[in-house]
Simulated scan of single mutants.
Amino acid sequence: MGLKQAITPYLWFDTQAEEAARFYVSVFPNSRILTVARYSELGPGPEGSVMVVLFELDGMQFGAINGGTVFKLSEATSFLIDCKTQEEIDFYWEKLGAGGLYQPCGWVKDRFGLSWQVNSSALVEKAHADPATSRRVMEAMMQMTKIDLAVLQKAAEGA
Rank of each mutant, 00 (worst) to 15 (best):
Y39T: 10
S40A: 07
L42N: 03
P44Q: 08
E47P: 09
G48D: 04
V50C: 10
V50E: 00
V50K: 08
M51E: 03
V52K: 07
V52Q: 11
V52N: 12
F55G: 13
F55D: 12
F55E: 07
E56F: 02
E56M: 04
M60D: 03
M60N: 11
G63A: 14
A64G: 12
I65N: 07
N66M: 08
G67Q: 09
G67V: 09
G68V: 06
E75P: 14
A76F: 06
A76Y: 06
T77I: 14
F79T: 01
L80S: 11
I81P: 02
Q86N: 11
E88G: 00
D90E: 10
F91W: 14
F91C: 05
F91T: 00
Y92R: 07
Y92L: 04
E94K: 15
L96N: 06
L96T: 08
G97V: 03
A98F: 10
G99D: 04
G100L: 08
Q103Y: 01
P104I: 05
G106R: 10
G106Y: 13
V108Y: 03
V108G: 03
D110C: 11
F112Q: 02
G113P: 02
S115G: 07
Q117W: 00
Q117G: 01
S121A: 14
V124F: 07
E125L: 01
E125V: 05
E125I: 05
A127V: 06
H128R: 07
H128D: 01
H128N: 04
H128E: 02
H128W: 05
